[in-house]
Simulated assay, not measured.
Amino acid sequence: MRKKSFDQQYLETLSKRTSLNIREQKQLQSCQKGFEGECRTDEVTVQVTKGLFLCLDDVNLVFDDQRIQIDKLLQIGNRLYLIDIKNYHGHYTFHDRTWYCNGKPLTHSIFGQIDRAHDILARIFAENHVNIEIIKVLVFTDYEVELDIQEETGVVVKYLWDFCGWLQKLCTESGQRGSIPWKECLESYTVTPYRPVTDFSSEMTRKLTSGIICPNCNGFEWQQHRYYLCCQHCGYCEPKETAYVRTICEYGTLFFKKTLKIGELMKFLGQNYSRSYLERVLLKHFQSLKFKSKQFCYQNNGIEFEYWFSDRKKYFDKLQKRIHWGS
């Protein structure tokens, strides 16, 4: 499953508890648009390849102190397709080795990221004696984008709607995949996705709205029952246990540099919620960190509930189904 970037998780969580400034709004829109395009490309790739070809998504590598992020790597036959996904809008022209958007020259090359990723991949494979041809592919996913490429580029450039047919043809014409250990080769160079240096702790003057957010309408007003909460705005019901765990994950996403401490979490939850219940939830679902200090705390993965507890989805789904039991 492709995951949202750390920036997108952070900004989406932040937007529910305070107003975003103009820079943050633009960054969030860019993240969401990019993620949407990547997911559409993933769907097309899965439909066409039917899982028969080795594929990696959102690959983050470091080689010789250089870091790269690759949207998709797909092996078909004995070729490795390095796929960069762009959800750009507008009319783009490439001529005289320069990119133009709506007639104005860009200060950067759209090929820059994929060229750099290709060079570093090639160096990694050469150093590890992995022999595989790398094909650069640029996929534009916005349905209103217009492309006019007037010279040879060394990059396969496709709209999403013709990427599907092109990929189908490659799969049909390909022979049996060779046993080329490119995936195993990359494992020792793989790192976690980029994360900003600072979290919300550095925002000294901004205030967050405390409480549990309704995942259906983003409201904060709940009617509390013994086993579940009911939103007073939209009527959505959520198990109490799930609501607490989800909110702890929201705190962790915003304060990803910090460990999870009961006092700070209670401030985040607000005065309407139970400290003793929070303690039970932490003990049940989060990993305790036993430091020498007297302050007891828990490990913070710094990601959304959906990703943090992806391996326990069935458990929380069952809670949702029985929210009214014993109420």
Rank of each mutant, 00 (worst) to 15 (best):
Y298Q: 06
C231Q: 02
L20E: 13
Y189G: 15
D64L: 14
A243M: 04
D142S: 15
C101H: 13
E241K: 07
V281A: 02
V191A: 05
N128H: 10
F305H: 05
K50W: 02
P239Q: 09
V191R: 12
I303G: 04
R2G: 08
T205W: 07
N300D: 05
D65M: 13
V62H: 07
L160G: 01
T209K: 13
F140N: 09
G219W: 08
I68K: 14
T198Y: 02
V139H: 00
G90T: 03
F6N: 04
G51D: 04
Q232C: 09
D115C: 11
T190P: 03
V281K: 09
D42Q: 13
P181I: 09
L319P: 06
V145W: 04
L20W: 01
Q27R: 12
D7V: 12
R97I: 13
N300S: 03
F111R: 02
L138A: 10
W161S: 02
M204I: 14
Y100C: 03
Y159Q: 07
C55T: 13
E127R: 10
K294V: 13
K104C: 12
V156M: 12
F63S: 14
K257F: 08
I114A: 02
K261Q: 09
Y227A: 10
Q168E: 15
R97H: 15
E238V: 13
V156D: 04
W166L: 06
E24S: 03
G34F: 00
Y143I: 05
K267F: 09
L289S: 01
D148L: 09
C55S: 14
E127Y: 00
E241Y: 07
Y228N: 07
C297K: 07
Q295V: 15
C297A: 12
I262A: 02
Y236A: 02
L61W: 00
T247L: 04
K158Y: 13
E306G: 04
N218P: 07
Q168D: 15
C297Q: 12
L121R: 12
D42E: 10
V191F: 04
V62L: 08
Y159P: 04
F255G: 00
F220D: 01
M1K: 10
H233V: 11
